[in-house]
Design a protein around this nucleic acid. Sequence first.
DNA 1: TATTGTTATACTCTATAACTATA
DNA 2: TATAGTTATAGAGTATAACAATA
Lengths: 138, 138
Amino acid sequence: MGDAMGLLLAKLHSTTSALNNEALAVFGLRERSFSVLALACSGLEPTQRELADFLSLDPSQIVSLVDDLEGRGLIERTQGKRDRRAKIITGTPAGNELHENARRTLEDCEKNQLSAFTEGEVSQLRSLLKKALCHIRS
Amino acid sequence: MGDAMGLLLAKLHSTTSALNNEALAVFGLRERSFSVLALACSGLEPTQRELADFLSLDPSQIVSLVDDLEGRGLIERTQGKRDRRAKIITGTPAGNELHENARRTLEDCEKNQLSAFTEGEVSQLRSLLKKALCHIRS
DNA sequence: TATTGTTATACTCTATAACTATA
DNA sequence: TATAGTTATAGAGTATAACAATA
């Protein structure tokens, strides 16, 4: 079973991703838009370029995600101070409130998904995934 | 970082999946079509429904995958003996040969991706992913 | 020249509903 | 009535290329 790892990853990702999206649906969010909202509300004041880098998405994909959240009054684009090309993304009060609720719901959802694991196993899994990511990108 | 696990999974899946697809491109295959070809050449004589179940895909998605491979003379649809609705998918000689080459290439590709890990870590990761999958589906 | 955000396009993936032929 | 395969469609994800404003 040489292909087991890739297939396992694909299945697990699609299953957990569907559950996460389902949990976030009541907020009108999906994994992607939640991640953008989370970073906008993090206090890091990221530019769109930084969002793209952090989420491993193309800058062009960020545009529609930001458009949607901005249109709903959850985040704001403000012009960068040092670089007027850059647009800094920050959460509005409404955005921060929605994010906080969504974050709690998502946390419960993931806790539920991992309920068969001990704390040790969860951190083991997390560190293995991180290690894999770090190495593969290089 | 409550959402770290979902984000990690998404990134790792998209990264490894891209590498696998790249490696399979010389054979005109992708992860999906490779999996179908692999099962067709496994001797299990699966029906399309069984392919869908095993790969966690909708039966309608199997159709175009099978269409493509069949059109290239790599697999065959044959009518089920006991159930004439069912179509059994088997690899042709050309399909078996391509599969064997693709399998070796993919194996190297995945071995390369996991080269930072000890054998123990690999089997640990694999068993954690399996355990997660088993539990979440229920 | 290079970079940020944007627009546009195309292809893959995912999800659903409805149809046909068999059971 | 239920199931296997099929068709069709739409939405989400992914990958590129090109452009305007700014650096």
